[in-house]
Amino acid sequence: MGSSIVVQLARKYGAVIFFPTVAVGSIYADWSHTREWKRQQQQLKLSAHLKEQS
């Protein structure tokens, strides 16, 4: 009995839960990747600057 209610709710509200979850997950993944990329670019810039000083 209880599992049939869960299945009914999942069918009824699946899109309401699924799409925002995927959207937030995609935004977080992009933000995280961009943050790491910027950190790497900053390290490369610092490394190049230190090589010029040597």
Results as ranks from 00 to 15, higher is better:
Ala15Cys: 05
Gly14His: 11
Ser47Trp: 11
Ser4Leu: 01
His33Lys: 14
Gln41Ser: 15
Arg35Glu: 08
Lys45Val: 04
Phe18Met: 11
Leu44Gly: 06
Ser32Pro: 00
Gln8Gly: 13
Gly25Leu: 05
Ala23Gly: 13
Leu9Ser: 12
Trp37Asn: 08
Ser3Ile: 14
Phe19Pro: 00
Val16Thr: 06
Thr34Gln: 10
Pro20Lys: 12
Ser26Leu: 14
Arg11Cys: 06
Leu44Arg: 12
Ser32Cys: 09
Leu50Met: 14
Arg39Tyr: 09
Ser4Gln: 04
Trp37Asp: 13
Lys12Tyr: 01
Val16Lys: 10
Val16Arg: 07
Lys45Ser: 01
Tyr13Thr: 06
Leu50Trp: 05
Val22Asn: 02
Ala10Ser: 12
Val24Gly: 02
Glu52Trp: 01
Ile17Ala: 10
Tyr28Lys: 07
Gln53Lys: 04
Lys38Arg: 02
Ile5Pro: 00
Leu9Gly: 06
Lys45Asp: 04
Ser3Phe: 15
Leu9Lys: 08
Arg39Gln: 13
Ser3His: 14
Glu52Asn: 00
Ala48Lys: 11
His33Tyr: 13
His33Asp: 11
Gln53Leu: 05
Gln43Val: 12
Ile17Ser: 01
Phe18Asp: 05
Lys45Glu: 03
Pro20Glu: 14
Ala48Ser: 10
Thr21Arg: 09
Phe19Met: 12
Gly14Ser: 10
Val24Cys: 02
Glu36Trp: 03
Thr34Pro: 01
Gln42Ala: 11
Ala48Thr: 07
Ile27Tyr: 10
His33Trp: 11
Lys12Pro: 00
Ser4Pro: 01
Gln41His: 09
